[in-house]
Design a protein around this nucleic acid. Structure first.
Lengths: 243, 243
DNA sequence: TACAGGAGATGGGATGTCCAATGTCTAAGA
DNA sequence: TCTTAGACATTGGACATCCCATCTCCTGTA
């Protein structure tokens, strides 16, 4: 018969299947009714009645859907189909990253690898589509970063913004969201473990160099400098994991 | 005062913050106690008592953590720290993809873009690290695919397996999981919309060509053929979205 | 020794009650 | 007429309690 899909035991997850099925039923209900982003879902009680399960059970599924970024729940008002939202992944990935740091930080490192692959792999296409306007936005971000560095403020937000805008030309929201997730996970892991002293000037300088390569439409150089940028991040993470 | 972080209203999500906080507390509890993959969590009642919240409330958070792949819940036995598991993302992304198909299928297309970027961007590194053993595995998969195609069976599993093994040399589980997620989402969207007739021979042939380029360690050719493979997928998706 | 079945523990789920947040509607006041 | 404070209905949040379903492990019997 060769089911041959997963190496899990057979009827060991019947409960999980049931609750997953309920989540699917709710999502199907949304799709079947033609609800779109921003539209309201039935109330908890209505769903409970329509789906034939208790309100608590429905709530559990709804909370999961909320966590997955499918719906948005507003206390006292209702539940709505959510706009794109990947904040869900952040929690899960952060947990895995921190868990892995107790061993050798492999998973956290893998995360950097994926981000590096995505960014240095896509910088070429991004440069192709780059307009003057995009470049101006990037410069603005860099100037803000430099100002922050001078004041000794953390560069977290500016760093994220830089990378976000770097790939804005691709016009791919999923990609932006994914990279944002990776970035946030890295940041959270870093914060959770206590960051050592950071060299703000060096960090700013790195980004300026990437900016320069991008501005000159030098794909190879941009890719290389991005690689180096990530190598630096990787080293920092290794230090933290070793401690 | 310049909060200036997000463009959302201020105290509109206090409830979400609270439930998210509870999830975080549970994850911190796992980390603080040094629990590792496979270790058992306290029971629902214990957690309820320790965290000072009702059992139902704890359950909602636990379900979320389960959905995020953080813990594994086994009815009648207990809850355990889960091994890496990204099946969570599948549901959320599939929903978004199907939702977007009602418009122009933009999000589904973005998903293909990201996958294409990841795969064609990383094939070079994968080829660098490719061993004879990896290649043999790949060939085995291809032969299985060909056999299935001859019997007129769907190639889903073989297709997934091929791509999984293609990047096995990178030894990056996160990457493999991510690509698996994208693949499953694509498949689910495809199934949900009813797939047109598929050309099994053509599909097999595509993969053989990619295999050939990889076997010859021709990075450029492999990358190009991967690109073409994804272009085909993109076209198919566009057809479905248009219907 | 091997198997069957029960005991105990744990999660799954339903129901009812009350609390808290939100938006809306109304009425008083400027 | 416009504004605003407050009452109100609606909706989600949280909890307690009860019972069911499922699992593992252990014990007794063949």
């Amino acid at each position: 018969m060769a089911i041959a899909s997963q190496e899990v035991s057979p009827a060991r997850f019947s409960a999980q299947l049931r609750s997953h099925a309920l989540q699917t039923r709710i999502m199907d209900l949304i799709l079947d009714r033609g609800l779109d982003v921003g539209d309201a879902l039935p109330t908890e009680s209505e769903l409970s009645a329509e789906l034939g399960v208790g309100r608590n059970t429905v709530r559990e599924s709804l909370k999961v859907l909320q966590a997955l970024g499918v719906i948005e729940i507003r206390h006292g008002f209702g539940m709505f189909v959510a706009p794109n939202n990947f904040s869900a992944l952040v929690s899960g990935l952060t947990f895995r990253g921190r868990l892995s740091l107790r061993h050798k930080g492999e998973e956290a490192m893998e995360l950097i690898d994926v981000r590096q692959a995505l960014e240095s792999g896509l910088i070429g296409s991004a440069i192709d589509l780059l307009t003057e306007e995009h470049l101006a936005d990037l410069r603005t971000t860099m100037e803000a970063m430099e100002a922050a560095a001078r004041k000794g403020e953390p560069l977290y937000e500016h760093d994220a913004e830089f990378h976000r805008r770097l790939y804005a030309p691709l016009n791919n929201e999923l990609l932006i969201n994914l990279m944002d997730v990776f970035w946030q996970v890295y940041r959270k892991i870093h914060l959770a473990l206590g960051t050592g002293p950071v060299n703000l000037e060096q960090q700013t300088q790195d980004h300026w160099e990437i900016f320069e390569a991008v501005a000159n439409k030098d794909k190879a150089l941009a890719s290389e400098r991005l690689q180096r940028h990530f190598d630096g991040i990787r080293l920092k993470l290794k230090d933290v994991a070793a401690a």
